[in-house]
Simulated assay, not measured.
Amino acid sequence: MLNPQWLRTFTTLAELGSFTRAAERLHLTQAAVSQHLRHLENELGLLVIRRPRQLELTPAGHALLVYCEETELADKRLRLRLSGADTESGEISLISPGSIGLALFPMLLALQQAKPGWVVRHRFAPDSEVLAAVLQNQYELGLVTLKPDDPRLAASHFTEEPLELIVPATQTDIHAWSDLERLGFIDHPDGQAMASRLLSRRFPGNPGVQTLRRQGFTNQIGLILEPVARGLGFTVMPRYARTAFARQDAIAVVECGPPVVDTLWLIHRSEWPVSSFAARAIEHLRQHFANAEPA
């Protein structure tokens, strides 16, 4: 690595074109300026041609000057970012469960459109992968449905999301367990667990979701409601996944009594603060969910 003092001497010499003036500005002797230049030229080759009334940079000298300018800019960007003052550029990296992710991703893209210097990196994943990704510094922010007790993670309330029983719009007459048996169940990775929690409210003492005829399965969060919209069965899933579905006229939500609500926790590494631009994004998203009307 090149000595920073030698580089400061070189850039000053290139700017002023004089050993005498460079020495005066840097509060050095002319001999020290010449020594710094000699050290650089020993490593990089001839940098300056000494002429009677001026100094001329060689191609290597011009290349070193560009390097010094780029290094100075990188140093300024680093200091600005670490100071927390830079909220106009940077990467927002977020990993979340699929349902809330369907709601968040369009909002993040809207933020990126408003702030072209921001870059959004988002991934869908279950709780276990979210925890691992944040702990391993692969993502700065994560959302989970269970509050972690790991001291390396800071967790704060983000929003709440109820589970919903969703049926084809043409088959909303659901009064008994037999009506669900008739429709059949559209399953997904969390389907049976979610259905067991919600349906126990509407149909206490039911024989269990596993007894229902399974009409289909998909692990793609955005496709779970497609077979429901086509009249092939019912499912149970979180509200934000349902509201993100394009064909709302083809599905319906059946009331199941007292809501079953999951709390979503925002997590990040507790040892250091969230970046300034990520903090602004979090504030915007929280405000959106706080003001959102139940759909």
Rank of each mutant, 00 (worst) to 15 (best):
K76P: 02
A169S: 13
G142P: 09
A132V: 12
F124T: 14
R81N: 09
G117N: 01
E72C: 04
L65S: 13
H122W: 05
V120P: 12
V134I: 09
L141A: 11
E88F: 10
A132W: 05
Q113F: 01
R152I: 05
G84Q: 02
W118S: 11
L73G: 02
I166C: 11
D75T: 12
A132F: 06
R121T: 15
L102I: 03
A125F: 03
H122M: 15
L57K: 06
F158P: 00
V130I: 00
S99E: 02
D75W: 08
I95V: 15
D149W: 09
A103V: 00
H122I: 11
D127C: 03
L135Q: 11
T172M: 03
D75S: 13
L109S: 05
T159M: 13
D86W: 07
S96P: 00
L141W: 00
V130W: 00
L141D: 08
L80R: 12
T87R: 15
D150Q: 06
L94D: 01
E164I: 03
I92V: 15
N137F: 10
E140F: 04
V144R: 06
P106F: 07
P168T: 05
I95G: 00
S83P: 00
F105W: 08
P168A: 10
P151V: 03
D149H: 09
G61L: 10
G90E: 03
A155K: 02
G101M: 09
Y67L: 12
A103G: 04
G90N: 03
S93L: 00
